[in-house]
Computed example of a mutant assay.
Amino acid sequence: MAIVRVKGFAIWRDRKPPYKWRCRHRKSGTMIDLAKFPLGGMTFFAECARIVALGDKADEPRPGTLGQLIARYRASVFFTDLAARTRADYQRCFDYLQPIADTMLDRFTAPLVVTIRDKAAAKHGRRFGNYVKTVLALTFAWGVERGYLTINPAAKIKGIRRPRGLADPNRPWADTEREAVEAALPAHMRLPVALMMYCGLDPQDALKIPPTAVSDGMIDARRGKTGEAMWFPLPAPVVAALVAAPKHDAITLCANSFGKPWTPSGFRASWRPIRQELEKTGAIQPGLTLKGLRHTVATILAEMGYDERTIADMLGQKTIEMARHYSKRANKTRKMSAVVTSFDAEVNRRRTKIVKPA
């Protein structure tokens, strides 16, 4: 029998007698009766087309539902113009919401959104629960502007607060920790870490920037998540890392030990044993993350007295809110020393003498 292949269908023959041929639609799991629709015949292909058409029809969201709103939002420029990473983050939320895609929009209320947020947090963590709430609010806002809803039921709902006493995620690195990590890194990992450590690049941005992003001692790139331009002279440690980096022909500035572009998961897999070994020896403290290097850059700049707008420009942020978040733990001793000195002099000069009434 001639080999027959149909996209979306699995066709195989039993390994044991009577060695019957079988066919299954992969997506729906529907089996085709090959005794009724002989394999390779006109009736067989017609039956395949019928099953595919039924599946396509079932995939169409019902009018007036959350699924329809999400489908139309995803088709709009407000979604397609987002950075690839942001679209992927949104899609994770949409995938999570798929079981309730048939819910009519007029059924969504603030209490229902809170319930959805809390269930997402219980299953995948507080941050994911809050992100689902945020994505719902943005999608509903888009729908309100186009008449799909009259109000945004997620507009005024707050996120779940971090538990008191919980360690800050992506904390800044101490100077001793940065020195210990730099000394422990193999040659092919030093350049990407230097870009994170001294330029404040997000780990994924550091791994994917092209060689053309660096020239004449300058870095000229865009942050993947926001699309904001990042253009400034390269710090001396990055220049040194560029000179010492192993030569390769990869399409990215940084490459792994095989001379191929890094993948985020591959870099994390290489970084994990280094971090674990340094933790065992006490060279670094637990909780060190590559993302924390952005916080480190912001913290150092804040300690130097730079304003939040400058820090945001360095990190490729559109607004100062994340710069404020990143640098909130900065030790502002240098900045406040003059204030405290002036305050102390004023108190001692005019306010320590008690004047008694006559």
Rank of each mutant, 00 (worst) to 15 (best):
H325Q: 13
A75H: 08
D249W: 04
K20E: 15
S28M: 10
D89W: 02
E346F: 09
K20S: 15
R309M: 14
A183I: 01
A180Y: 02
A245T: 07
G259M: 09
G159A: 03
K353I: 05
K7D: 14
R329D: 14
K16V: 09
G129A: 03
T176Q: 12
P63L: 08
R15P: 07
A137I: 00
R178L: 15
W231N: 11
A213Q: 02
F78L: 13
P17G: 04
I251Y: 05
R171H: 12
T310H: 11
F94W: 05
D95R: 14
L39M: 12
Y90C: 11
L293K: 00
T150N: 11
P273D: 09
A141F: 04
G29V: 00
G227C: 13
N348Q: 15
A154P: 00
G316P: 02
A180D: 09
I51R: 06
V113D: 05
E279H: 06
S265C: 11
M31Q: 14
Q204L: 08
M104E: 13
M314K: 14
R350P: 04
R178A: 13
G165F: 01
Y198V: 05
F108H: 03
K260N: 12
T176C: 10
F343S: 11
M42P: 13
G40T: 01
E145H: 06
G125E: 04
P169M: 03
A83E: 08
E303M: 10
A255W: 00
K20L: 14
D89K: 04
L66M: 12
L278G: 11
K123R: 15
F79P: 03
R50C: 07
R171A: 14
R62P: 02
K7E: 13
L66S: 11
T150V: 06
W173F: 02
Q204W: 02
R13M: 04
V144Y: 01
L166Y: 04
G41M: 06
A58S: 13
W262I: 02
A236I: 08
G64N: 09
G29K: 02
C48H: 07
G41R: 09
W231A: 12
A174R: 13
